[in-house]
């Protein structure tokens, strides 16, 4: 396992002097990737390959964003969306993790509950919208519910999988060393599960973020989804794309932040090495 191959695997990078020395951090590469993306987009629109009426240039979008940032409307909508996703996601985590633990731990519970969950899971949040409006009307509650629906299943699946894949021998080792239930939970069960649970929760947040925008397109008076919808009716295509860009960048920031947490917490786990 601890072979010298790790040291050998890296080819000697000192032979020959590269013209430009690029920093090798992940953050820098992400920055370059995004930069190139926006650059290509800008070129496509300025050269006229893509009609500016069909897709505004990044600069036009940035201007629209700046305007909305100055007049404050961007922050109002962003704040509304973030608050909705936070609440819906929290409820989804509590319910998803609790159900995952119950089903993972007790085979009988799983036999009863999992078919129900697996039958509800394929129904897309969009299909829930009519009944959501019927139940909750056009308020925040409808958004919470849709975010919950989007996030609860990945949270459940991750927790269930994590509990099912716990190493029996590790549990037995803890038991024969005299671990009481609290130690079994906090020193064994939880840390052993996190490498599977945390990526699941990150995916759940991403889906929740998509759902809140979907909900706001239809059932809200604020939020980034509402901003897009309203701008569309006013033919403000720049604002539409500005809303989309905000959604994308916020989603990117959220998953980057969670990935950072994962890398810290799960540094010991096989998938986090390299």
């Amino acid at each position: 396992m601890s072979s010298p191959s790790a040291a050998l695997a890296r080819p000697a990078a000192t032979t020959g002097r590269p013209l430009v020395r690029l920093p090798k951090t992940r953050g820098f590469r992400a920055f370059v990737g995004l930069g190139v993306f926006f650059l290509v987009w800008q070129l496509l629109t300025t050269t006229g390959i893509v009609d500016g009426f069909m897709l505004p240039s990044p600069i036009a979008v940035a201007e629209a964003l700046w305007q909305m940032a100055i007049d404050g409307s961007l922050w109002v909508h962003l704040g509304a969306s973030l608050q909705r996703v936070a609440i819906g996601y929290l409820i989804a985590c509590v319910v998803g993790i609790a159900l995952g633990l119950l089903c993972g731990w007790w085979r009988t519970v799983s036999d009863y509950v999992r078919p129900v969950i697996e039958a509800l899971r394929p129904i897309p949040p969009l299909a829930w919208i009519p009944i959501t409006i019927l139940w909750f009307g056009l308020g925040d509650a409808a958004s919470y519910f849709l975010v919950f629906l989007g996030a609860v299943f990945p949270a459940f699946v991750a927790t269930y999988t994590a509990v099912r894949s716990l190493d029996r021998n590790q549990m037995n080792a803890a038991l024969c060393l005299g671990a009481k239930p609290s130690m079994l939970l906090f020193d064994v069960l939880i840390p052993a599960s996190l490498p599977i649970v945390l990526p699941g929760l990150r995916i759940a947040l991403g889906i929740g973020w998509m759902c809140v925008v979907t909900a706001e397109l239809i059932a809200a008076q604020t939020g980034l989804g509402y901003l897009i919808q309203q701008s569309r009716t006013l033919f403000q295509i720049n604002n539409v794309v500005a809303g989309m860009v905000t959604i994308g960048l916020v989603g990117l920031a959220m998953s980057a932040a969670l990935e950072q947490v994962e890398r810290r917490v799960n540094a010991w786990a096989p998938s986090e090495r390299l």
Partner: peptide, 12 residues
């Protein structure tokens, strides 16, 4: 106490 073939150490 038990010593296991696959060590069963706590990886974290």
């Amino acid at each position: 106490t038990v010593v296991f073939q696959d060590y069963a150490l706590f990886g974290w």
